[in-house]
Design a protein around this nucleic acid. Sequence first.
DNA 1: ATGCCGACAGGATGTCGA
Length: 260
Amino acid sequence: MKIATWNVNSVKARLEPALAWLKQANPDVVCLQEIKTVAESFPREAFEALGYNCAVHGQKTYNGVAILSKRPLEDVTPRLKGNDADDQSRYIEALVAGDKGVLRIASIYAPNGNPLGTEKFTYKLGWLERLAAHARDLLANEEPVALMGDYNVIPEDNDCYDPRAWVNDALFQPQSRAALRKIEFLGYTDAFRARHGEAGQYTFWDYQAGSWRKNQGIRIDHILLSPQAADRLGACVIDREVREGEKPSDHVPIWCELDI
DNA sequence: ATGCCGACAGGATGTCGA
């Protein structure tokens, strides 16, 4: 099956480009982030017309995540456990069947965390800690799992155009990178890095300062696979040409093939 | 220096993103 993730930066503002990309890329499952709308206003019919079922954990104005799937979505679980007071919609998980097995898949929108020295950064680190705890619990099931989305973490120096430009940014702090690395050390595989060693492969380019034109991007959208999923990994590709289209998101889709 | 751009809510312009 082909699974993808894309921070669309408003599903309503991105509806036409999203539908065009879905028709062309034809993924079986898509995780969306920053849909910026409540479930009642999610443009469900437009996606259903392309054959997708929709699981939505929405929020007004900010955040919001969803999973689209051609096969039915079972065991749909919104919210990341570990803090009942957290009312930001940043996580939804579901179970989806493939031809050869079942995949547990999560759409993740980790907090940005800027500026440093504020509760926003503390919240980011706490959220990633909760994600790691949940990721660890999922490993006990020994099933294929894909935790995919906008982690808001630049893993390595070669995942940004200039490390010096990011040293004071929450996305590049040692604590943020350690939080992502902790999930990998549990046994999860960065699908893109498993298939590509080259530097300068980005999933986000800021709208400002001509970042896209100058290819000054960062790689912050990640597909993390449990061992049972990583064993079935095929290609992993960043659809960077989507950034060239009309009214683009500042993120582009990234997808992989799983033999499931 | 910390805007530049874009989306949102609301009906001007402040907040947020990364």
